[in-house]
Structures are given as structure tokens and as C-alpha cells.
Design a protein around this nucleic acid. Structure first.
Lengths: 120, 120
DNA sequence: CTCCTTGTTCGATGTTCGTAGAACGACGAA
DNA sequence: TTCGTCGTTCTACGAACATCGAACAAGGAG
């Protein structure tokens, strides 16, 4: 797994609003964030999205580059989690308001968890 | 002024989160929203943005189409205002959190008011 | 009526984005 | 070692987007 060369995790202070909002303006990515909203760390394979795996990898990279998620590697598996603390520190109430709004609109409903994943 | 043929104002219930977030992922548009955040209605000529007038017209249309602003015509002049009530009703706390975040990042600082415009 | 101002629309251009498939590298299992 | 799995990167393509200048239409001012 070519070792994630370029994909850095921005520091908390490097997170910009435009990058965050831009990343969340896509239904798939917002759906992924909704799935991660319970704070639980998820493996790639638990995530279900109606796109090719290369596309999913791309979306997860955009989220990571924007500072919205953190990725951890363990052997060949990768895990993602929401950087809720950093986001709340940087932009108070933004993530909460966004998630509430996403729930009421049911944005990214096509994104979900695999059947064998632990429930929220 | 070809009478704004196609640019409709979506009803409150037609406003979607994705359209709102997508519209606000551009620094110029977010800057415009910041300028309008005081609730005051502004004329086109009061708005200062580092883009050509046709581009400004485009950005204002995107905001209008997303349901973020309302445009009123008076003779040849146009006026914009924020649809704060509708946005707050549709997505509680979202606009406030977004504006606070935009202030802390000083997003769209290049957008402002003309010198002769009434102060905020 | 004749300008002048104002904002929209059109056409064009260059860029970014979402998407997919193929090839690759790293790890684990047999 | 030989596979098979997993995720990334490369490459490519169409769509969407930001931008501008020019042309245009509707009013207002003279």
C-alpha cells in the first residue's frame, strides 16, 4: 500500500474553514462524516459508498487533507476517525450544526456501514 | 437589465444543505455573506469584490439560487439581503457557526463595502 | 429622443473536481 | 515462496466552475 506518501494530516491551526466547507460540500463526503459522527473509529472495509474504491480513497484523502478526519494504518488495514476535538476547537459549533443539518436533509444517505459493522 | 429571467428564489423548504454549503465554499461568496451578516440590505454598487462585474453577478446568482440571499429590483438598481430567517429555520445554528468561523479565519477579507456605504 | 448607467447573458478559456480502471506496493495467509 | 487482499497512485475523461470581456436590455437623466 504505497505508504500514503503525500497525504499529511494538517495541524489543528492549519485547518482552514474554506477547506473544511469545500470538503463537506460533496454528498458522499458529508455522508462519510455522518457515519463517523458517533466518534467511533472505522475501518475502510466497514464503509459502504456507491463509488469505486479508488474514488472512495480519493474522498477520504480530501477529508484527511482538510483536517476533518485522521487516518491510522495497521498492517494493510486503515482506520478513520473524526477529528472532532480539533474541529470543535477551531470552529466551535460548526460541526454540530452541520451534522444536525445533514440529518434533517438526510444528506449522503447512500453512504453507510457494512452489515457486519458494529452498530452506532 | 434583461429582467433576471431564470434566477428564481427557492422557497424555504426547497433550500438544500448541499447547495448552501457548496455556495459558501468559495471565499468571495463567503465574504459577501459576511458583509451582509448585519442584516442590512445592500445595493450592488456598495459591494466591493476583486472580480469583474460579470463575475460578481455570477456569484450573487449562486447565492440567490442556493437560497442564501434575496434579490430585489428597483428600477435599474438591485439590492441584496441575507435570508437569515429562512436559513435559521431550515438549518438552526448553521449560519451563526459559519459566520463565527469565517470571522476567526477572516475569510473573504478582500470583499467589503464601498467607502460611501453606511457602516455596519 | 439620445446618452449613460446598471446588471444580466453569452462565449470563451483555463482550472478544478468527481469518477473509474489499471498498475503497483505492502502485508498476511497458505 | 506464492497467492490473495487492501489501499494508494497514475492516468484519463467529462462535467462543473471561476473568470473575464463583449454585447445586450431596461431604466433614468439630460
Amino acid at each position: 500500500m504505497v505508504a500514503m506518501k503525500q497525504a499529511r494530516h494538517p495541524e489543528r491551526d492549519e485547518i482552514t474553514l474554506i477547506a473544511v466547507v469545500g470538503a463537506l460540500s460533496d454528498p458522499i463526503r458529508l455522508g462519510l462524516v455522518r457515519v463517523l459522527a458517533d466518534g467511533r473509529e472505522r475501518g475502510w472495509s466497514e464503509l459502504r459508498a456507491p463509488v469505486a474504491k479508488s474514488t472512495l480513497s480519493h474522498h477520504l484523502r480530501v477529508l484527511r487533507d482538510a483536517g476533518i478526519t485522521r487516518t491510522r494504518q495497521e498492517g494493510t488495514r486503515c482506520f478513520v476517525e473524526l477529528r472532532r476535538d480539533d474541529l470543535d476547537a477551531r470552529f466551535p459549533r460548526l460541526l454540530g450544526a452541520l451534522l444536525s443539518a445533514a440529518d434533517s436533509d438526510d444528506v449522503g444517505a447512500a453512504v453507510g456501514l457494512a452489515d457486519d459493522a458494529p452498530a452506532a
